[in-house]
Simulated assay, not measured.
Amino acid sequence: MLAPRSLRSRLLLASGASLAAVALMTGCTSGGSTTSTDTAVEENTVEDNAASGETITIGFSGPAADHGWLGAINSAAIAEADKYDDVELVVAEGTNDANLQISQVETFINDKVDAIVLLPTDGAALTDVAIKAMQAGIPVINVDREFSSTFAARTTILGDNYGMGVSAGTYICEQLDGKKDAVVAEIAGIDSLPLTQDRSKGFADALDDCGLEVSNRVAADFTVQGGEAAASQLLASAPKIDAIWNHDDDQGVGVLAAIDAAGRDEFFMVGGAGSANVMRDIQADNTVLKATVIYPSTQAADGISLARLIVQGKGMSDLVESAVPRKIQLYAPVVTKENVEVYLPSAFES
């Protein structure tokens, strides 16, 4: 179902702003000059894009895979590169140390790779070295965590954290169907992170459009242990709940453990991110978990695919525009029992 009109308007405006940022094939520098990332786009068909071209080397660097979603990011990127006989993928060891990741990118630059796909452990900290790569004529594909300068990336691929909150809130509104006294609870991730703030803002906006609000809110830390502790606190302070949105399916393992321990089942729960174990629970329909909102773990894989197109001078064949867009934001769909079979094959294990 569509979101209510006022919320749809906000989303359409946001989408328009993203689509307007289409297609600079130039790797601009702060001085306004261009780099060798300027490539003439000659073809824009499915057949030409799939055809093998000149072999290119792509460097990939991401954070340590200490979370199910991050592990899926890495494995999907490697699997995508394996599809192409004209792509050689160099994978740096995953790290949560920004300085180490900077040195990895500098190695890619020194080795003169053709493109870099980078999910930065800290977008601001990796901005300068990404600009350095762009100035060296190496297109950078920024994944998930944005750099602080537009000159640091040729293309940026993002999930939709605000949209996750909107999707979760809209689903809950639909299920509660006008119950104005409903008690809605929220188990967030790490409150200091912009992504958590965006998810909470989208959730609050969607609830507001159907006359509801968050009655009880706690924050966890994206871990199983943190989810269990936060959920235990929430359940102890809220004797009655109608619906819960938990931001993250990894921490949701602990959330469900706390719910089971408390013997509570008067509410339904919506998850976040889209893990396989959560989707199996939704499919079985034997817990309070009835839906989850996807935060795509395909972003780096998309980055590999787009890096190949950019370096080989190709565009996206389903677009009239002849070049790869400068920014792409992925959708945050709701997975329920009715559509879970569509999403389960690509889900990650938490």
Rank of each mutant, 00 (worst) to 15 (best):
V91A: 14
T26H: 15
E93T: 14
A220P: 00
T298W: 15
G263L: 00
K240D: 05
A65V: 08
S215T: 14
T223V: 06
Q283H: 11
G31I: 05
Y295L: 02
I109F: 03
T39L: 10
V278M: 13
K112P: 04
G169E: 07
V129P: 13
F267S: 02
A72C: 03
D160F: 04
G315A: 08
T223W: 06
K179P: 14
A230N: 07
R199M: 02
A284E: 15
T35G: 03
S275Y: 11
V340P: 04
Q101H: 14
R280E: 14
V340T: 06
T39A: 11
V113F: 09
P239D: 03
A50W: 13
I294E: 01
V113H: 10
S75N: 05
S232V: 00
V335C: 05
A130C: 04
K112Q: 11
G211E: 12
D221Y: 04
S148P: 10
A236S: 15
R280P: 05
D191Y: 02
T150C: 10
D205P: 01
P239R: 01
T287C: 05
L319I: 01
A98G: 13
A77W: 15
I190T: 13
E228A: 10
N277L: 12
Q251A: 01
V218R: 13
T298Y: 13
G254C: 12
V46C: 07
Q251V: 02
R10H: 05
D38A: 12
Q233V: 08
G271K: 00
S192M: 11
F222G: 01
D248F: 07
P333H: 00
D85K: 12
A23K: 04
T35W: 03
E42S: 12
A115G: 10
A64V: 14
V224Q: 08
G252T: 04
D318W: 15
T35A: 04
A153Q: 06
S149Y: 15
S61F: 13
D281W: 09
I294W: 00
A65P: 11
Q251T: 07
L344V: 04
R264L: 00
A168K: 01
R5W: 08
N49D: 01
Y171L: 12
T292W: 01
V320I: 13
A238E: 06
